[in-house]
Amino acid sequence: MSHVPRPQAGPAVVEMRGVSFAYDGEPVLTEVDLAVNRGDFAAVVGPNGGGKTTLLKLMAGLLEPSRGTVRVLGRAPHKVRARLGWLPQSLQVDPAFPVSVLEVVLMGRLGAGRGLRPRAEDRRAALEALARVEMEHLAARPFSRLSGGQQRRVLIARALATGPELLLLDEPTAGVDPAGELEIYAVLETLRHHHTMVMVSHDLGFVSPLVDHVICVNRRVQTHPTSQITPELIEAMYGQPVRMVRHDHQGPPEGCACG
């Protein structure tokens, strides 16, 4: 790939080699090879049940691969947990949970090695993270009183509060109304200049102007530079999901991280 001139590209932030994963013997991902470089914004797309969230959880070290190796920031994912920012699937969090917005973001400042009680500097950092998603004026609000889109933005702020070197976002706009979706995309647009990001999304049409790469997941994985995303490809992926795994092009095109 020596012909690829990517100015900000350094060593791979995420690297997967020959990774397979199975739930109770049922294969979810097979022989995945991919790389995400520093500064990249990659979208993970594909049909439901195709393994998008599984791929993200393997990167976070929440799941262990059945075969193959996952390296994040050059090490095993569970060793670099503290350097990851994580936005969970929307169902992971109870929208009625009694907690304030600031308390949620402070969770990104606590943890093993960071102490179990927030200090003044943690509050400052949490408010800064809220400002980056334009939510600092609602810091004292109950989380349960926010709209779906605002809740997702608070959870993005929690991920930012960890001071992450890699942001892993699982469907930032899931369960969010169209206006809220636009606000979240605006936030992502500003974040992409400062962070390496991998984002699971169901909405390829919306994300393709934002991202550098699209990682297509349907048990197998193919990475494309955004310039390669055509209406035909989108139709093939969502209309005939089985065909989509049989990418016919040979050799990695420019910027494509997998062969």
Partner: peptide, 21 residues
Amino acid sequence: VFYHPLLMVCFDEEFARLRGL
């Protein structure tokens, strides 16, 4: 004493795990 970690684990177990709890 353990209000914050208990809150974290009750609110979002997955995230708490990533924070090393």
